[in-house]
Structure formats: structure tokens, C-alpha cells
Design a binder for these strands. Structure first.
Length: 569
RNA sequence: CGGUGUGUAGCGCAGCCUGGUAGCGCACUUCCUUCGGGAGGAAGGGGUCGGAGGUUCAAAUCCUCUCACACCGACCA
């Protein structure tokens, strides 16, 4: 490709509304342009990157024996009503009507469509297992699109769905997908980790997320420093303290605390550490109007996922209305505590371990100090409620947890029969009896990978693509090409030979000054660059520089082709 | 959805407080010079100032409504 007739839409200035590096660089390097909130046009250069990622994903999926299909983006409401998700999915499901006022949605995912397909097409256990996938635009009307392509309302996703006669077959394919995902992210040269993930309302054991590690990641991941345990923090169990609870050492006292409604304020008021106090959160119960109290140590944070799985607690988790709390507990937020509380109480394991603690007095403006479980109030039911923190013991018993941030780029999931049962996807088994098929689903955020790769691979001059996803592998930068016949001839000759060798090469034949060309090629992130100029050419040399190299090196003109081909692999 | 903030040329911004017919840098077009790290000069093109309504002789500027976008929050006891 020649830059003279290629859309190089680079910008010197960073658009004001781009927050994270990948978003800024994607705009500056001319990979994408915003159309509306969370909606982006892919420019030629960006699309090349996207296609390269897509190609690797497709190759690895095909290698596992999965078969590619293509399903409609527009899906009829009836299918979603069958699965129950027309009601359940919420406003993220972008709903539309056709000219006959029939309801449709734009697919955020394709479980319904694929299950309907398999229900109609697959009748015998002999046809299973089967794994079908597509690489297609998904639509989710996100509450808050963010970070450019990272959380957008339209995005490119690889989604695969497997169908099985039993759990054992599902687990086999699941492992196969796990391995394929690892191969994909390795080929893309990304630093990633598979982590144990939440299975949501579906339950079951099998779900992993694949995270690319990056500071700007929206998810927190907990790792053990003593084993290969890794989990999304929302899933990481906070183990019960091993030491027994200390014996009570203080008397319970009622203390006036006017205006003190937060743990920090309480700790300061009483001159204690937050970890010596309790916070009491009230959430909606699963029966109309019921409330449940959740008690945590003052310095700990509630884990919503853990909380909403507790019996009696409404899912999704919802904080109770303050008015209802006041009438049920006698005080508003900020003055609540477990002593004398008339609603069901769950106590976090760490909170249950405290003695002589401070907590709200269930009376506005009053707290209690020197409180002890059993003696002063019933210990309620103990549960794991809190978010793990760095330094906690690893749930697998070896090592301590570290917390890092990650960008979720893949998710694999053992679905079981949630959709097949709801939609009646059955096959005949070897005894001629109908059985409901067991399903797995496997997603990769193809467009998100592009942003994640930039988060991991950039410097002050721009993007530094991993080789496998660079829009072009090599840039040829001829200097003063319009005047110097020697430079032009050499550049054209090399360009032709590299094209013949199958290299993705970009010839910068614009009539621009050298600085402009260098800056553009670096911003765009092309991994390899050669410069052809009269000066070096007079010595029969050509200059080479890798995108991450400090300095350039001279290579004899006769050797340059071999030199480059060996570098490019 | 709540809070905060921003909408003026493709991008980045000034002008608004104190109303008087719109400006700067980059980018773009033409010409000359320059040509190894985002060149210099000259001459140009491009904006109904997000939209609607109001006040006024006069509105980018003041008032009302509205739309869009961004960031923060939705973990608070």
C-alpha cells in the first residue's frame, strides 16, 4: 500500500473527550472516528488491525473444529420471550419495531437464535457435540459507553455455542476452548490471565474470564503469589480468620455521635481504627418489602455478587430505601448496627471475628462502643460478604492475594440447560428417548482486544503494535523521493520485492518532510521501519529501526531483503 | 438514573462576566523557498456560535426551555 492514496488520518492534538490512552491513540492515529456516544466508524487503518485479530481468532476456532455461521443482528421478540429474557434483560437490550409494529431487538448475544437453530436442525445424539461460532457486530445499549471502543454500544464479538449430550462432553469442549483462547491471546502477544469468573444466575461451576492486564482495566483480579489461583475479585472468597475471637474486654456503652454518619467520621470521632468498627448495610429482601441487614468490618467493602446469592436477598442487589430502613430499624443510614436489630442479619466472617467493636446504635446520632457478639447481640448468620483485599490468604490455601486490574477480552461459560430447556432443544439418545441438550458458550471481544493491545503496547510517540496485529508489518520511508531518482528507484524496487514476498508493507511516498513521516509511522505503530536516503545510499546502506528500538542500524543494501524477511518471521 | 461540566470551522481553543455584525493555532487549497525528526513566507477557502423561544434598536454574549456530549457516582450507612 502507498500512503499517497491511503487514508492516513493522523492528528497532532488529542481530542478533548478521550480519557484513556488507547482511546486517545486510536483517534490520533486515525483508526476510528466517533459517530455518536459509543458508536464508532473504523477507518481503513483501524479496520486492518481489527481484521488481523479476527483472522487469528477464526484460525484458532477453526482449528478446534468449530464451524462458522452468521446469524442476523435483528432478532424477533418471540425468541426472547421463549427464553424469558425479553423481560429479564433490561434496558441494555435495544428494542425496535418493524413497520407492522412487531417487536424485535438488536442482538446483544445469540443464545436464543442459535438454540432455536439447533432445536430445528439437530435431532440425534449422533450429530453431537457441535460447536458453532460467528464473528459479528453485537449491540448493547450500555448505561454508560466509555473509553472509546473499549465499552461501546456496537462492537465486534466472536461468539461460539456448543451443544452436548452430557456434562462430560461439555467439559471436554470447554477445556478445548480454554486452550484455544490461551493460544489466541498468546499469538496476539498480549499479557493475559484466565481467571475464575462469576456464573451469574445460571449457577454451575464452569466459567473463566480472560483478562488482558492493564492499569485502566475496569475489573479487578485477585492472584495468589503462591499458586496459580486467579479469580475476578467478585468471585474470590475471603476465608474465615483462623484465630479464635478474642474474649470481651470492654463494657458496651452508648455514645452520642451527632452528625457522625460514616465509618471514617466515626473512627475519627472515637479515635479508633475503622477495622475496629462495624458497618451495617440494608438491602432489599427477596419478598416484597422485606429487608436484610449485611454487617461488615468498617474497613471492608461489600461484594455485591456474594451478597445477592444469599438466601433471602433480592437479586440483583438493591440498597434499601432510607425511609423503609428508618421505620424497620429506628434509624437512618449512618446510625445502624446489629444490636437489637429486628430484621434478618448476615455477618461477614471478618466482622464476626471482632471483639469490643463500635457500631451504630439504631438511633440517629448514637453509636455503641465496646460491643461484643453473643454477650450484647446475637451473632446472626455468618457468611462471606466482603471484597477480598491485597494480602488476604489465597482461597486455595497457598500464598497471599495480590490485586491487579484487567480488561475482560474473553469469557467462557458452561451454560448447562438454561436455554435448551426453556426453548425445548432436545435430541434422541441411543435409547430413542428425548434428552435436553447441554450447552456451553464462549465469547471474545474482538474490537476490545484492539484497545486492550494499545493499553499494553504504547509509548509517548504512539502505538507499538504486537507484530501479529499491526496494520502493516513494515514501513518504507524514502527521503526526498520526489527529487532523488536513486532513492525513488531503490524504494520502488524494495517495495515490489517485499510485496512479492507477501509482506504487508506500507510505502510512504507522500511528498512530506522526513519528520512528518517518522512521526506518523511511529504514531500508527508499524513494528518495522526502513529509511532510504541519499546519504546512506551513497554508501550502499539502508537504515533499519524497530518500533521499540532505541537506535537505528545500517544494513548493506544487498542484504536488506534477507535481513527484513528474517526479522518479520 | 443522580451529580458536575462542556457545546464557537475537521481538531485544539479564545471571545461570553461588561450585548455592537466572529477570532487564534493546527489541518486544508494555490504559489515560492526549504527537505534526516511534526519547515518558512505570501495569498486563500471554510462557522446561520448545538437547537427553539424570549428580552433588546442590536444576542455567540442576558433569560427560559430543549438536545447532544463528556467525566464522576450508582460500594451508601
Amino acid at each position: 500500500m502507498r500512503t499517497s492514496n491511503y487514508l492516513i488520518a493522523t492528528q497532532k492534538e488529542t481530542p478533548a473527550d478521550a480519557e484513556v490512552v488507547s482511546h486517545q491513540l486510536m483517534l490520533r492515529a486515525g483508526l476510528i472516528r466517533k459517530l455518536a456516544a459509543g458508536l464508532y466508524t473504523w477507518l481503513p487503518l483501524g479496520l486492518r488491525v481489527l481484521r488481523k485479530v479476527e483472522r487469528i481468532v477464526r484460525q484458532e476456532m477453526d482449528r478446534t473444529g468449530a464451524q462458522e455461521v452468521s446469524m442476523p443482528v435483528v432478532q424477533p421478540a418471540e425468541l426472547w420471550e421463549e427464553s424469558g429474557r425479553w423481560e429479564q434483560y433490561g434496558p441494555e437490550l435495544l428494542r425496535i419495531q418493524d413497520r407492522h409494529q412487531r417487536d424485535f431487538c438488536l442482538g446483544p448475544t445469540h443464545e436464543e437464535v442459535i438454540t432455536a437453530l439447533v432445536r430445528d436442525e439437530i435431532k440425534s445424539y449422533k450429530q453431537l457435540p457441535v460447536n458453532l461460532y460467528q464473528i459479528q457486530t453485537k449491540v448493547r445499549d450500555e448505561i454508560r459507553p466509555r473509553f472509546g471502543i473499549m465499552r461501546s454500544r456496537e462492537f465486534l464479538m466472536k461468539d461460539a455455542y456448543s451443544f452436548h449430550v452430557d456434562q462430560a462432553s461439555l467439559e471436554e469442549t470447554y477445556q478445548c476452548m480454554f486452550d484455544a483462547y490461551s493460544a489466541i491471546f498468546s499469538r496476539l502477544d498480549l499479557e493475559f490471565r484466565p481467571v475464575i469468573a462469576d456464573t451469574g444466575s445460571i449457577g454451575g461451576s464452569g466459567s473463566h474470564e480472560f483478562h488482558v492486564l492493564a492499569e485502566s482495566g475496569e475489573d479487578a483480579i485477585a492472584f495468589s503469589d503462591g499458586s496459580d489461583y486467579a479469580a475476578n475479585v467478585e468471585m474470590a472468597e475471603a476465608l474465615a480468620p483462623t484465630e479464635p475471637r478474642p474474649a470481651p474486654g470492654a463494657q458496651m456503652q452508648r455514645v452520642a455521635t451527632p452528625g457522625v454518619t460514616s465509618i471514617d467520621a466515626l473512627a475519627e470521632f472515637l479515635s479508633i481504627e475503622p477495622r475496629q468498627s462495624l458497618k451495617t448495610l440494608v438491602v432489599n429482601g427477596d419478598e416484597g418489602g422485606s429487608l436484610v441487614a449485611l454487617v461488615l468490618r468498617g474497613d471492608h467493602q461489600l461484594n455485591n455478587i456474594k451478597a445477592e446469592k444469599l438466601p433471602g436477598v433480592a437479586a440483583p442487589l438493591q440498597m434499601a430505601d432510607e425511609g423503609k430502613v428508618r421505620s424497620a430499624c429506628g434509624a437512618g443510614f449512618g446510625s445502624l448496627g446489629p444490636v437489637g436489630l429486628a430484621i434478618p442479619v448476615y455477618v461477614d466472617r471478618a466482622a464476626a471475628q471482632l471483639a469490643d467493636f463500635a457500631c451504630g446504635g439504631n438511633e440517629d446520632g448514637w453509636h455503641l462502643t465496646g460491643v461484643n457478639w453473643d454477650r450484647d447481640c446475637p451473632p446472626g448468620e455468618t457468611a462471606d460478604l466482603r471484597e477480598v483485599v491485597a494480602g488476604d490468604p489465597s482461597p486455595d490455601g497457598s500464598g497471599r492475594l495480590q490485586i491487579k486490574r484487567g480488561i475482560e477480552v474473553g469469557h467462557i461459560f458452561q451454560l448447562g440447560t438454561k436455554y435448551s430447556a426453556a426453548m425445548g432443544a432436545q435430541v434422541l439418545d441411543e435409547n430413542g428417548k428425548n434428552i435436553t441438550v447441554t450447552m456451553g458458550c464462549y465469547g471474545i471481544g474482538v474490537s476490545r482486544i484492539v484497545a486492550a493491545a494499545i493499553e499494553q503496547n504504547h509509548d509517548e510517540r504512539g502505538i507499538a503494535w504486537p507484530q501479529a496485529m499491526a496494520p502493516f508489518q513494515l514501513a518504507i520511508v524514502p527521503l526526498n523521493m520526489q527529487k532523488s531518482e536513486a532513492v525513488a528507484a531503490c524504494a520502488e524496487e524494495l517495495y515490489g520485492k517485499l510485496l512479492d514476498a507477501g509482506v504487508d508493507v506500507l510505502l510512504d511516498d507522500r511528498n512530506e518532510r522526513p519528520g512528518v513521516k517518522f512521526a506518523d509511522m511511529e504514531l500508527i505503530g508499524i513494528p518495522h521501519r526502513i529509511v532510504i536516503g541519499d546519504r546512506a545510499l551513497a554508501e550502499n546502506n539502508i537504515e533499519y529501526k524497530g518500533r521499540r528500538d532505541e537506535d537505528s542500524q545500517l544494513v548493506p543494501r544487498d542484504d536488506i531483503l534477507d535481513f527484513l524477511l528474517s526479522r518479520l518471521g
